[in-house]
């Protein structure tokens, strides 16, 4: 039982008539880790998250790899979502940027729907949930602090509350792995902190493995010990978040780094960005280090600060 929670092996993805979205991505997440996936928009974060959740198929790779495994069992292999994906999805809770609740159903029902993958099919289709299951759902709602809104429709909740309901749904699933696709991108700062606090707490106290893609680096640095950085669909950094300085990030992302920071975060020193030693970049292979935008990015960040 020592298989990693998530194993992404040499994964590529091209959409029709487009440049590749994911290029030879390798990623291994051990059980109980909390990992942030960062990158500018269009860098492939969502696609990678959706591929791990088995919602998007990856390309069949020539030669080695092209596989996504959850606890050692294949979610995707040979260019298609495997037959096991249905049962695997029950173990992988997914939290989306737009919450993806069914807005006309009550919050309680939305949370109960997390059980669909585990209950008898006919009972799931009829929507018959036992009293004990409803109790569990209420406990899940209490865990994220919105039990008062159980009978409201999904659409009546604020964004932050909807996202917490979505997290309660993954709790109901009993997911061991929680992957979140920009869970806080459409939330206000205090709701965003609340959601990140809940994710971090689930990781700490229940040992749930969390992979969360984030648009803004500050949250990654604050909540996640490990950061995986994507750029143009390739992993350009995979290591401790403590090593990610603003200077290093603008080196990694060039002009794009500007959108990774909240205004007023740190001070980007243009000179430091240019003189950042290569030893700080364990996996810099994919990056063209001498791009002129790097300097521009530094200036833009200064302008924001």
């Amino acid at each position: 039982m020592s298989a990693p929670a998530v194993e992404v092996a040499n994964v590529c993805k091209c959409f029709l008539r487009g440049s590749p979205v994911l290029r030879n991505v390798d990623l291994k997440i051990e059980r109980g880790e909390m990992v942030a996936l960062i990158g500018a928009s269009g860098s492939g974060k969502s696609t990678l998250i959706r591929a791990i959740a088995g919602l998007t198929s990856i390309d069949r790779n020539e030669g080695e790899g092209g596989e996504i495994r959850i606890f050692g069992r294949p979610m995707q292999a040979k260019g298609r979502v495997t037959g096991e994906a249905g049962s695997l999805r029950a173990r992988v809770g997914v939290v989306f940027q737009q919450f993806n609740l069914v807005s006309r159903l009550t919050v309680l029902t939305n949370v109960l729907l997390g059980l669909l993958g585990q209950m008898p099919r006919w009972r799931g289709c009829l929507g018959w949930f036992s009293g004990e299951e409803k109790q569990r759902a209420m406990r899940a709602l209490a865990r994220v602090g919105i039990e008062r809104h159980a009978l409201k429709r999904g659409s009546e909740l604020s964004g932050g509350q909807q996202q917490r309901a979505a997290i309660a749904r993954t709790l109901m699933q009993g997911a061991d792995v929680l992957i979140a696709d920009e869970p806080i991108a459409s939330l206000d700062p205090s709701s965003a902190r609340r959601v990140m606090d809940i994710l971090a707490d689930l990781n700490r106290s229940e040992g749930i493995t969390v992979l969360v893609s984030l648009h803004q680096v500050e949250y990654a640095l604050r909540y996640c010990p490990r950061v995986v950085a994507l750029r143009d669909g390739a992993v350009v950094y995979d290591g401790a978040s403590s090593l990610l300085t603003p200077a290093f990030l603008s080196e990694l992302y060039g002009a794009e780094s500007e959108e990774l920071f909240l205004p007023g975060f740190g001070k980007t020193d243009e000179a430091a960005a240019e003189s950042a030693p290569d030893s700080f970049m364990p996996r810099k292979a994919g990056v063209n280090g001498s791009r002129p935008e790097a300097a521009l990015g530094g200036m833009a960040a200064l302008g924001n600060a």
């Binding site: 809770g93 997914v94 993806n100 069914v102 729907l113 059980l115 669909l116 993958g117 099919r121 699933q173």
Partner: peptide, 21 residues
Amino acid sequence: PRPVEGIRATGSNKLQDVIFG
């Protein structure tokens, strides 16, 4: 399509996606 995807991610089958999503 997003709510449907949210339900599919819980491990539901196609019929349940239609009924609840």
